[in-house]
C-alpha cells in the first residue's frame, strides 16, 4: 500500500504517495527528477548518493523515502546555482576537484556537512573524514584542497 509522504526538498514542500520500498535516492531521482543525486553501489559503500537530511550527511540509498517523512532534504540542486555557487562549489571549481564528476554531488554533501559541523578541519585528518566517499578517478588531492580552502574562508 502506498504511503503518503510530506518532505521538504531544497526548501520546497513536497507531498507524494510512495511505495514503502522506494529509497530516498530513487524518490529524488525518479519521482522528483532531481538527478544530481547519483547512485553508485546502492549499499552504502561508495557515498555517491550522500545528501543532507535535517542538515546531517546521510546515504540516500540506505534510507527509505518514507523515513524522510516530516524532514528536510538538501540535494546538490539545493546548494547553489549557476552564477551563484556556494563557497564549497566555487572551491571545487577553482581546484578542479572533479574529473568525471560522478562522485561530486556526494562529496559536496559530505563537505557541506563537515563545514557546517564547525569542527576544525586539518589536512592530516580530512582524508579519514572523507573515507566514506569514493572517487574512482582517484582525484582526492584537489578535493581535500577545495574543502580546506572553503573551511578557511569561513
Amino acid at each position: 500500500m502506498e504511503q503518503s509522504l510530506r518532505v521538504k526538498v531544497n526548501g520546497q514542500a513536497v507531498k507524494r504517495e510512495v511505495p514503502p520500498r522506494l529509497t530516498l535516492a530513487d524518490f529524488l531521482r525518479d519521482r522528483l527528477r532531481l538527478t544530481g543525486t547519483h547512485l553508485g553501489c546502492e549499499h552504502g559503500v561508495c557515498g555517491a548518493c550522500t545528501v543532507l537530511l535535517d542538515g546531517d550527511a546521510v546515504r540516500a540509498c540506505l534510507l527509505l523515502a518514507v523515513q524522510a517523512d516530516g524532514r528536510e532534504v538538501t540535494t546538490v540542486e539545493g546548494m547553489g546555482e549557476p552564477g551563484r555557487l556556494t563557497p564549497l562549489q566555487r572551491a571545487f571549481l577553482e581546484h578542479g576537484a572533479f574529473q568525471c564528476g560522478f562522485c561530486t554531488p556526494g562529496f559536496l554533501a559530505t563537505g557541506e556537512a563537515l563545514l557546517r559541523s564547525g569542527r576544525r578541519l586539518s589536512r592530516a585528518e580530512l582524508p579519514d573524514l572523507l573515507a566514506g566517499n569514493l572517487c574512482r578517478c582517484t582525484g582526492y588531492g584537489p578535493i581535500v584542497d577545495a574543502i580546506l580552502e572553503a573551511a578557511g574562508s569561513r
Partner: peptide, 9 residues
C-alpha cells in the same frame, strides 16, 4: 563504527 554518514543514522 562505519563512516560518519552511517553513524548519523
Amino acid at each position: 563504527i562505519g563512516h560518519f554518514q552511517i553513524r548519523n543514522r
